[in-house]
Design a protein around this nucleic acid. Structure first.
Lengths: 154, 154
DNA sequence: CTTTTGGTTCTGCAACTATAGAACCAAAAG
DNA sequence: CTTTTGGTTCTATAGTTGCAGAACCAAAAG
């Protein structure tokens, strides 16, 4: 199994996107599973393709499993585990990422409560920002529905 | 200038939200400027309230300035600079955060192009994910408008 | 010119992170 | 029971990060 130059570059680029939130090795493993033509890879394939040590590979895979970004299956009569990207969970994670916005908006609301002068410029802006965030949060399900329906149409 | 216990706690909590993307000291400075009743703080006030060293304060402030999260003004006959949160930019940054999604979606599109079997489960899921992301991206201006109009109503 | 003020830059270090390599281990194969 | 396989866990370490403290500097004050 060899990767094209373009695929290698893409793994690095996508890896960088993922690196905020996980170690470089894990980010690259995930990018590999997403980019590559093959749907699943064994431990040693990943290790060789990305030239990682066994420990880095093992740690990366167990991290990615623990946050449900990948899953693995086994073949009968084969002790190896085959790891694959878990796209449905990725869509959920994407949604959860948006959800996190709400957490910050709640903290902002707390901050507003503590403000003595609720009419100060800062207070007003904070109210606005929190409002935008929770508005957005409320709108998300609508957007997801809209997307679902327009997607199933064609 | 003293902060209440609640305000201190909130600064830490909001700080943690900001820490992905900047150093702890900078994150706390920003949280202070957002949470506090006073709209602006001098270098030494920040330093004292957060018990930071001069260098940490200076680096934090210059980082926050460089990414336009804060601004400062001066008073005539006073050499000090007074730093304040820049909320309008914060709303823009919030929008830019959403924009970043598009970047990943473009990388996903590149990955799809390189896929030999475009009908594989992985490919399909990747198409879906990228599609959701760019759909969301396209919908954002609409949401912002919706928010603007409902906000000016009351 | 000298001193003070407000802040920046430099130096060193403690703590943390990510990885390699080795030791290790359980299950399967022989 | 012994060996092999597929991986995990432990140990050591290079590299990075974030900060303190000191040295430094330019502008203003005296």
């Amino acid at each position: 199994m060899r990767l094209s130059q373009k695929q290698k570059e893409l793994i690095e680029k996508i890896g960088i996107y993922f690196e905020q939130g996980m170690q470089p090795a894990a980010a690259r493993i995930l990018a590999l599973l997403i980019v590559s033509d093959k749907d699943s890879f064994s431990f040693d394939e990943i290790r060789e393709i990305l030239t990682l040590s066994k420990s880095a590979t093992s740690n990366g895979l167990s991290f990615l499993s623990s946050v449900n970004k990948i899953e693995y299956y086994t073949k009968p009569g084969d002790r190896k585990r085959y790891f694959k990207w878990s796209p449905s969970n990725t869509i959920n994670h994407f949604k959860e990422g948006i959800e996190k916005i709400l957490g910050l908006s709640n903290l902002f609301d707390e901050a507003i409560k503590l403000k003595k002068d609720k009419d100060s410029f800062n207070s007003q802006q904070l109210v606005d920002l929190s409002d935008l965030m929770s508005f957005l949060h409320k709108e998300m399900p609508i957007i997801y529905n809209k997307w679902e329906s327009q997607r199933t149409q064609h």
